[in-house]
């Protein structure tokens, strides 16, 4: 069959793996966007910059902090960064929400989008100024170097880890939101914040923490991405455009929709590379156009 289609199984599996990896990043990032949009009514255009910050903080921890404190032997490990970087970037997000976004909730989506877009440009500009445009390499942590032989292909351990880690984080988030009491508060707050608050639930605090969490998800994806992609100021901007297309396809604000769509579109992109690689860069946008025409609210979105 493979000869008939003029491709090799290695190419197919390889591209499916790449697709699954990209899909994992689309899923985490679009999940964060969906959570933020649901609760804050803000289209977080700085999501890509926050993803980039997550990766950069991991890189800084590994290679720079030792020099800063005058102990070149000291470095923050990948595993520590995986926890620390989302916390730092999440805290940064909380400051932004408290000082800026808070004033925009009553206005049209457009204002939040413009503000977060501006923030993204500032962050990217700062990192370009500090570390240059060319980008940095981040070494794969020792425990995840090498590959596993699956019989039909070699699976690099780190790639397997990225897929597993992002799936676990995505479905844990989905579970908390859809199946727990805290999630019920979030869903209620998303649907009718005033009434939820009238029942005695601190909705303003929930909004702040939701933004912090969504941003922390982006940073987590950034750390996962650091050993795979080049850590550079533009890494987020390149990815986020695709992620926004994913969100549009899945439907703004749908949790499960963003996870499933993210993974599926990653795979579709990978398959397109195998069968008609010229279209691989645009296939997601073509799907977006079709979905917008047929179902404007997105595949999983509710029409309002």
């Amino acid at each position: 069959m493979f000869e008939l289609l003029g491709i090799t199984p290695q190419a197919l599996y390889g591209q499916l793996l790449v697709g699954l990896i990209n899909g994992s990043f689309y899923a985490i990032l679009s999940l964060g966007l969906a959570v933020i949009f649901g609760m804050l009514n803000i289209i977080n255009f700085s999501h890509g910059a926050q993803y980039m910050m997550g990766a950069f903080i991991a890189w800084i921890g590994l290679t720079q902090v030792g020099q800063w404190i005058g102990d070149p032997g000291f470095s923050v490990s990948y595993w520590t960064a995986l926890l620390l970087s989302p916390l730092l970037v999440g805290a940064f997000g909380i400051v932004i929400e408290r000082t800026m976004l808070r004033h925009l909730y009553k206005l049209d989506h457009l204002y939040g989008l413009l503000l977060t877009f501006g923030i993204a440009l500032i962050i990217e500009g700062l990192f370009r100024d500090w570390y240059g445009i060319s980008g940095q390499q981040y070494e794969i942590p020792e425990a995840l170097q090498g590959a596993i032989n699956l019989g039909f292909m070699f699976l690099p351990k780190y790639r397997a880890w990225v897929i597993v880690a992002s799936l676990v984080v995505c479905f844990a988030t989905w579970y908390v939101i859809e199946r727990t009491k805290l999630g019920a508060y979030l869903r209620a707050g998303t649907e009718n914040p005033k009434l939820t608050q009238a029942f005695g639930i601190n909705v303003p605090l929930m909004i702040t923490l939701t933004y912090g969490f969504g941003v922390a998800l982006a940073a987590f994806a950034g750390v996962l991405a650091a050993p795979i992609f080049t850590v550079g100021p533009k890494m987020g901007a390149d990815l986020i455009i695709v992620v926004f297309a994913v969100v549009v396809i899945g439907g703004m604000g749908s949790i499960l929709g963003s996870i499933v769509t993210g993974l599926a579109l990653g795979l579709i992109e990978g398959l397109t590379k195998v069968f008609y690689s010229e279209a691989s860069a645009v296939v997601i946008f073509v799907i977006m156009v079709i979905v917008l025409l047929v179902r404007p609210a997105g595949l999983f979105g509710r029409e309002r």
């Binding site: 019920a184 869903r187 209620a188 649907e191 009718n192 009434l195 029942f199």
Partner: peptide, 16 residues
């Protein structure tokens, strides 16, 4: 003010 995204029981248990 019944929440559409919540089940009947979740609605009942929602207010602290």
């Amino acid at each position: 003010g019944i929440f559409a995204g919540l089940t009947t029981e979740e609605n009942l248990m929602l207010p602290p």
